[in-house]
Write a protein that binds this DNA or RNA. Structure first.
Lengths: 110, 110
DNA sequence: TCCAATGTTCGAGTATCTTCGAACCAACGG
DNA sequence: CCGTTGGTTCGAAGATACTCGAACATTGGA
């Protein structure tokens, strides 16, 4: 067997947003690196993983993308050796109206 | 001197909301106990500290109230031996419209 | 077929968070 | 004036979280 946990062809774990506790969504957004990712996604549509200009190793980047994905904030599509990430913007806005805007705005004008 | 950090008659540290990083606000809300507190405050107006029915010791309760206060989410008033806490609802709604609602609603209907 | 590129996972180090009991302070009441 | 009551702070224990290098899997091209 030698199942070391690597499944290859990974089944991306992308939960139903209604099944994710609010605290998990908030916790996922309560990190500077992940917020950078979310902001980049908000303007850029779809991003390949390696196009994020955050200052961390690829292991760390992978970790943060996983946290966002499992919190129901992003969706990931695999194509070739790359992976493309996008925001689940509509779902988020429907379930938590205002949340994304609150987070995306760099500094709301008073 | 013997300044052990206890100031008695504590100067309550209640920051300007615009000075609090978004991540700090989100992190403050990303906890079940604190969310219980916020929800109680949202319906109840002003609460004395000991009227929260969360299942933790008073030390822990004090800790969480401090986190909320220093994140700019609550304001505290001292009267006699008690302390009265209230939500900074208007400020939050102005700076992060939708955030409180997103957090307060137990389970938004799809 | 072998190698390079892209991501993921593991393991470990470090830091931060949550929680509590104990000790403490301040205000009020007998 | 002393004890009670409401809250805070301290110190410590345990649990999570962030970060990285190393090792690995998968794809695609030379």
């Amino acid at each position: 067997m030698s199942n070391n946990g690597y499944t290859g062809h990974v089944e991306l774990h992308e939960p139903d947003l209604t099944a994710v506790p609010v605290t998990a969504v908030l916790a996922a957004l309560a990190d500077d690196v992940r917020l950078q990712i979310v902001r980049a996604l908000a303007e850029g549509g779809e991003h390949a993983c390696n196009t994020f200009d955050i200052g961390v190793s690829k292991a760390t980047r992978s970790h943060h993308l996983k946290v966002l994905r499992e919190a129901g904030i992003t969706r990931t599509r695999a194509a070739g050796t790359s992976r493309y990430v996008r925001l689940r913007r509509d779902e988020l806005n429907k379930l938590y109206p205002g949340l994304l805007d609150a987070v995306l705005t760099p500094r709301p004008p008073a």
